[in-house]
Design a protein around this nucleic acid. Structure first.
Lengths: 330, 330
DNA sequence: TTGAAAGCGCTAACAT
DNA sequence: ATGTTAGCGCTTTCAA
């Protein structure tokens, strides 16, 4: 077992004082070049690493970013947040931060977790995903002046915090245009019951593209819960009507998969697009809207570091553009 | 902004010394009941929480468990580890531990990350998933006497560490028996190229069940990379042979999905089972072997806490049994 | 440019 | 059963 290497070990090895080592590490520009070099050598030779705990005691900063890991639910779409989390961990590490996890069933228990975490591990910041209407988490954090960024825009507007989001409406609009260009005219939308920020946003994109193309959308807007089974049932009923849509823009890959299965069961042609470009879409060759998750995570980290360094004045929310991954030939 | 509440604040409020507060928190049995109550009241009233950083400075323990978050890869199977991670976070929190994440592309960089983490955040333990042949990570950790548990057994045997795993062979055996009971006789296996511990284990289960049933397995064992496309191609070719299998036990849901698609494309009946009961299986009604991930995570945490409390003498590796989720009527 | 002193909040060891 | 002392490893004054 190697001896514990502290700043004192390094100082002795390099023949300088403890303080000088600290300076080299934190404010290198203030130290003479030669001394600096000697210290770096010692650090290297001894494999020294600053103890976060000790540093935190002095500075009050933990270099920890807390975020929630979701229970994957239906699972198909859950993978999106997992990919985001992976990217977040990676980019945060590059900026010298680590991600610490927690779980929470609802806003209330999540806020209780904030209190606990802030008292114990004292994360420097939070990243919140899955923002929704009347999200009490952001107000709670904002009221206390705690640094945080949301992945997902605030859907109620009052909050004035920094966020990163992907333009869902632009995604469904692109999907709609893709279908229009393929010659479809009666293009329906299958989304979630209205009232969810994300869902309504995606519906808007379809509506906008249809309107821009001069298409009538009456009777083409449908909604059901976000599961494959629900979608299958809904689309089955839909295809019985007259006139039935020839294509369907879906708010998620789950819905899209359900729609495809319904169409196949009835042996009816139906062009479908999904959302999130999940593994399922890749697997079954489904055209889907893809979110730039690595970019989103990187932007979150950037906003956060600016915030923590007190340089966030000039920073603004970020709205990223998704891309359409075309897979079928419909 | 609330004032910082330290152990001193609590002590003053309760009218006792700092040390007494610490005793109440860490060894309550040593404090008189009344004093204890007073201190608890003060803690409650002030919303006091111990600072991990300060505690860590004294005790050397961070109450942090480090684990890797994987890049989801193909994605379909990736969701298994995400669910495990969720469960791990939840059960660890219940034992007073938090999960800290890192990423790594291979064993080598992962070990470098251990060194970094141990020097900086000093996690108390590691949880490693995705064990494989000649896994250098476990030897590195074991050599240094660092506490860790693997989710996945050691496939090379030399290591003598604690692990939790799910009996994959039992899973594929159950799937095979299910198909046998449904009347199938020529039941093939579609797995990964031999050499992977997990894959070979799953193959063994099928082989064992077939042999037990007196079925000949010649020409029924197939392998390809773990993607839907590979499986689709492989199974397409397979069904052209004579005699073709009437059912296929697959080593993953990805492979199973590919197999189903190939059969449907050729309009050939083929009963298929998958592995991991991923969202995809649920979505498309695929019979699949389900791993008890919550249980696995809980066992990992239990082994770890025993290890950290120095009470692991009696602890042994844990092999959990999977269950078969029957979805179709084949 | 470098060094010495102080203290962050906690708990192990010792003293009462 | 409770209190006192010391010190974990670091950085922020302040002095040389």
């Amino acid at each position: 077992m190697a001896e514990k290497v502290t700043i004192a070990t390094v100082a002795k090895y390099a023949g300088v004082s403890r303080q000088t080592v600290s300076n080299v590490l934190n404010t290198p520009e203030v130290v003479r070049e030669e001394t600096r070099r000697k210290v770096y050598e010692a650090v290297e030779a001894l494999g020294y690493r600053v103890s976060q705990a000790a540093r935190q005691m002095r500075t009050g900063r933990s270099r920890l970013i807390a975020t929630r890991i979701e229970s994957t639910g239906d699972g198909i779409n859950g993978s999106v947040l997992d990919r985001f989390l992976h990217a977040l961990t990676e980019t945060a590490a590059r900026s010298g931060y680590r991600v610490i996890l927690y779980t929470a069933a609802d806003d209330e228990t999540e806020i209780a977790t904030y209190e606990d975490l802030l008292g114990t591990y004292q994360p420097d910041a939070f990243v919140l995903a899955s923002t929704h209407h009347s999200d009490t988490r952001t107000t709670w954090l904002a009221e206390r002046g705690l640094p945080f960024v949301t992945f997902g825009r605030p859907w109620d507007a009052p909050d004035r915090h920094l966020w990163v989001d992907v333009d869902g409406a632009a995604g469904t609009a692109a999907a709609t245009r893709h279908l229009l260009e393929a010659g479809h005219e009666r293009i329906g939308f299958l989304g979630w019951p209205s009232g969810s920020g994300v869902g309504d946003d995606r519906r808007q994109g379809w509506l906008r593209a249809m309107t821009a193309a001069g298409q009538d959308t009456t009777g083409l807007d449908h909604a059901c819960l976000d599961t494959v089974a629900e979608a299958e049932a809904a689309v089955g009923a839909l295809l019985d009507r007259d006139p039935a849509p020839t294509a369907l823009v879906c708010a998620s890959d789950s819905l899209a998969l359900g729609a495809m299965q319904a169409a196949r069961a009835l042996d009816r042609p139906l062009a479908v697009t999904g959302f999130d470009d999940t593994p399922v879409a890749r697997a079954i060759g489904l055209t889907s809207v893809s979110q730039p998750l690595e970019e989103a995570a990187a932007r979150c980290v950037r906003l956060l570091t600016r915030l923590l360094d007190g340089e966030a004045e000039a920073e603004e929310p970020v709205l990223l553009q998704p891309s359409l991954v075309v897979r079928d030939t419909t």
